[in-house]
Amino acid sequence: MNIELENVSFGYTKHTTLLKNISIRIKQGEMIAIAGKSGAGKTTLTKILKGFNLPTSGKLLLDGVLPVKKNRKRFNEIGYVFQYPEHQLFSVTVFKDISFGLEQYHYPEVKKKERISEAMHSVGLDFERFVSKSPLELSGGEKRRVAIAGVIVNSPSVIILDEPSAGLDSDARDQLFHLLHRLNVEKRTTIIWVSHYPDEIIQYASRLLVIDRGSILSDGNPLDLLAKKVLTDAFGWSEVPVIKTYQFIKEKYSVKIKEPWNLQMVSRILTRELKNNKCLGKT
C-alpha cells in the first residue's frame, strides 16, 4: 500500500499545532526511519499514518484514495506497535493477546497455535514459558516483545513501530531488526519506525525522515543526511560516536565508510589512514 500525506497539519486543540504542512509519499516496500528530538512530533506523525489521528487540515491518501467510510478498513492493513507496550496489551494471556488480530480469520486451533509460536519465536520469546502468562506480568523488555509479536503475526503490509528498541537487550534488538529487514526484503513489507539509535538507522533504513518542531527538517538517504554536520548539529546527533566517526573519517581522510556501524570495517580503515597520515598534525 502506498501512503501519501498532502499538506497535513494536526493539533489536539485549535491553538496547538503539533504537525505543520507535512507532505510525504511512502511507497510499498520502503524501510523508513523517523528521528527527531523528544516532543518533535514523531509519534503524532505515525498516528496520522495509522489513522488514529485525523489531519486537522490536508489529506491522507491510501493508494490514492481517501480512507473514509468503507475505505477506512484499509487502515487495518497497517500494523502499529505503540511506544508503550502497555497501551496495546490487554488480554488475559500472552496467547490471547497475540492471537487477537487473528480471531477474525477463524483459523483452526492448531494453525493458530503454530502462527503464534512462530511469532513468539521470531522475537525470542519461549513459547512454553510465556504463552499462558498475563502480558502485564512480564518484564519491560518481555512486554515489548509480546507487543511486537502481536503485530507481526497478522502479516500486515505496512508495519509502524514507535521506538521499538527501547528497553530491549542487545540480542533482542539485533533479532528484531533482522526480522524487520527480512520482512522488508522477502515480503516487501513497508517498515516505518521511530528511532533514537543512529546505528540502527544507518544500518537498516533506506530513507530517513528528520522531524523538528512538527515539520520535516530533512528527508533522504540516512548516510547522506547524517554526513552533514549542520544537520546533525541541529538536532544534537553530532556527538553520537558512530556519526562522529563517520564524519571525522570523511572530513579528515576523504573516505566514506560504507558501513560505519561495522567496527571491523571502521577500525581497518581508521588504522590504515592513521598509519598513512603519520605526519598530519592537528587541523
Binding site: 562522529k244 571502521v266 577500525s267 581497518r268 581508521l270 588504522t271 592513521l274 597520515n277 592537528k282 587541523t283
Partner: peptide, 24 residues
C-alpha cells in the same frame, strides 16, 4: 571497542593522540 580494535591492528595510540582526541 574501536580503540581496542585499532590497538590490535598495531596503531600506537599515543603517537596518534591528536587525531584520536579530536575524534573523541
Amino acid at each position: 571497542h574501536l580503540g581496542l580494535l585499532i590497538k590490535e591492528q598495531g596503531v600506537d595510540v599515543l603517537k596518534h593522540a591528536n587525531e584520536l582526541e579530536e575524534l573523541g
